[in-house]
Design a binder for these strands. Sequence first.
RNA 1: GACCCGUUCGUCUAUCGGUUAGGACUCCAGAUUUUCAUUCUGGCAAGAAGGGUUCGACUCCCUUACGGGUCGCCA
Length: 438
Amino acid sequence: MTVRTRFAPSPTGYLHVGGARTALFNWLFARKHGGSFILRVEDTDEARNTDEARQAIFDGMSWLGLDWDEGPGKGGNSGPYFQSRRRDIYDAWFQKLADAGRVYQDDGAWRFRFERRPVTMNDLVCGEVTIDYRDESNTPDMVVKRSDGSYVFHFVNVVDDLEMNITHVIRGEDHLMNTPKHLQLIGALGGKAPQYAHIPLILNPDGSKMSKRDAGAAVGDYPRQGFLPAAVVNFIALLGWSSKTDEEIFTMAELVERFALENVNRAPARFDFEKCKWVNQQHISKIGVEEFVTAAKPFVEAAGLPVPENFTAIMAAVKDKVRLIEEVPAAADFLLGDGFAYDPEAVAKARGNTAFAGALEALAESFEKTADWSADAAKTALAEVAQSAGAKPGQWMFPLRVALSGRAHGPDLGEILNLLGRERCVARLRRFGSVSMG
RNA sequence: GACCCGUUCGUCUAUCGGUUAGGACUCCAGAUUUUCAUUCUGGCAAGAAGGGUUCGACUCCCUUACGGGUCGCCA
């Protein structure tokens, strides 16, 4: 039996991390077992569906790298993959229910008559769970077809899973109590039930249910902040799943290799944005400079900063300094061009070194006289000027950094010297004496 | 309210009856770097509570508390 999983979002809002993780687990499970991953759009609620939402789902999944084998834009033998276009299929299956005498009309809608008995499911994550359907007050017969003739979620969802030969349904725990209903429907329809795995929900840092507007909820926000897709995938995989080892940083391929439903937790996990950023930093440090340049360039251009000849070298210098790629412009602006701001605090601290502040012109001249410009040559020049001023070279490193970059933090001073070049270093030393702070 | 699931450092987690309860994020300290950061080392910090079962319980059972979910002609 070939594994077939699916992600079945309804296009009523942007793709959120909870949905993305559900998609991810289905994708990982399918890839791990050499099966197929299907994308099915559950757009039966016409009033709430929007084109933007549908596009957001496609974009979000594509960005995360969760490619589907069957579905919109991809085709397949079980289409169409939009429920809004499967009307005939549902009519046919509904007739089976009617023929079996399992539905009855109520206020114009059709209700499915449950068998009044305990229903047991064997969930791959939750284990054996039994719901007693003899308690009618807790499990009233459910509407499967509305009075306007349209079908409700439970019915189309079950029919599609049957029609599409889905073998494993991995979905949020909010569906756990729906599963006995689906099992009863499948029984009445004469179908073979897929295996179910209900994964815990993702909560906000304060433990409340994560919903729209909450920080980190929208997958569409991640690209804009400069997250790497693989990092986001890595982080959300860690929410409710563990490799059972001390390792935490995984590539997509490594996740596929290690993923197992047995290692999915039962308790809901809280979303920790700080750790998410840390995971991103780990992935940034692992990618090559070229990949980093490709990812960072749009952010630099959007910030209106120049892209000089030594752009790649500059990016290499700041690559391991940022957690999010959106931080690149602020981290590299002084290397990319001359229009950067000076940090008042750093400037004040640097000028506090009066020996250095008084030797700016001497330093500039010394730099100009250096035969071949290099970080080492510049440092030698710095040391000479410092010693002649009666200061220790080491004490001038920090103020020189501030004079050249305008801030206290940044790449290695040697790299700064090299990337800036003699001209700029000299100009910035002379400018530093009179630069206004802020 | 009824029903279902859950509960280990602040957060994500390991542990599947015998461990000084381990790792990671965050935070703090030290070391290294003639510079900031990185890095490295170390530190703070946990079994919800009460009963059982057992030679022995974080681990199994029960109760309570707390958290989440579900009870729609939403999905």
